[in-house]
């Protein structure tokens, strides 16, 4: 099915999925940042519980995974087409490009995907399988996700992996928003420079926002006794 679409249709689908994923990342980051509230993780745990138990969110999860899968499959299919389009490479590599990261989207994308599996194993599946400590607030039992986060990010290797991963995500995002809009046909000499700025701001905000969590935890938080 995907193979039959024209290259532009594939790009359009991929960019729509990508823009959806950017929106998801903002939600994810906002929830994550709650872990930094100094209340022994109560706010964060409640929010996390909402995210895994609310039926609407559960329903949305299908789209989220769908978005990931479509984005990845389209990316790979297009990339194979692109590699095939130049069977013999240059001796002196092409010199110019608009942004340094735009050339390595497939590479950053693949690495992000690999660590994503690790990330899902660390958190998502732990929560789903119930293989996790519980905590009681006002008589209701919640998964203690906050503690899990704390435990993980007190380990240096783990924290370093996450920081590198998030930086890769930042590089990937630098060529995301404006590129998505371009693929959808939005380019106007009056607005496009602003779109580029917005795009970079999105990349920086998401990267810094996510990275703050492991950094703050590693340096400023103690494990609860």
């Amino acid at each position: 099915m995907a193979l039959k679409y024209s290259s532009i249709t594939k790009k359009v689908i991929m960019s729509l999925a990508g823009l959806f994923l950017i929106a998801f990342l903002f939600v994810h980051m906002t929830v994550n940042l709650l872990v930094l509230i100094n209340d022994n993780g109560e706010t964060f745990n409640k929010a996390a519980h909402f995210m895994v138990s609310n039926p609407i969110i559960q329903f949305m999860q299908i789209f989220l995974f769908g978005g990931f899968i479509i984005h990845i499959i389209m990316g790979i299919v297009l990339q194979i087409q692109n590699w095939k389009a130049r069977p013999k490479r240059y001796k002196v590599a092409p010199y110019s490009e608009m942004s340094p990261f735009s050339k390595f989207m497939i590479h950053t994308g693949m690495l992000i995907f690999l660590v994503l599996i690790y990330h899902l194993y660390n958190f998502f599946f732990q929560a789903k399988t119930g293989n996790i400590e519980h905590v009681v607030y006002n008589g209701t039992e919640y998964e203690d996700m906050a503690k899990l986060v704390l435990v993980k990010f007190r380990q240096l290797p783990h924290t370093i992996i996450y920081i590198i991963w998030l930086l890769l995500l930042g590089f990937h995002l630098d060529h995301a928003f404006h590129s998505g809009l371009q693929s959808l046909g939005f380019n106007h000499n009056k607005y496009t420079p602003t779109v580029f700025i917005i795009s970079r701001i999105i990349a920086i905000v998401l990267t810094v926002g996510f990275i703050t969590i492991p950094v703050v935890i590693y340096f400023y938080r103690q494990l609860p006794v």
Binding site: S7, P94, M98, Q182, S183, L184, G185, F186, N187
Partner: peptide
């Protein structure tokens, strides 16, 4: 296909812009 890297625009001897690719899309 296009990954919006802009090398074409940078190298076009007639300075044709990416706006045309967006218009194509």
């Amino acid at each position: 296909n296009c990954t919006n890297t802009g090398a074409c625009e940078a190298e076009c001897p007639k300075l044709i812009t990416l706006e045309n690719i967006a218009r194509l899309n």
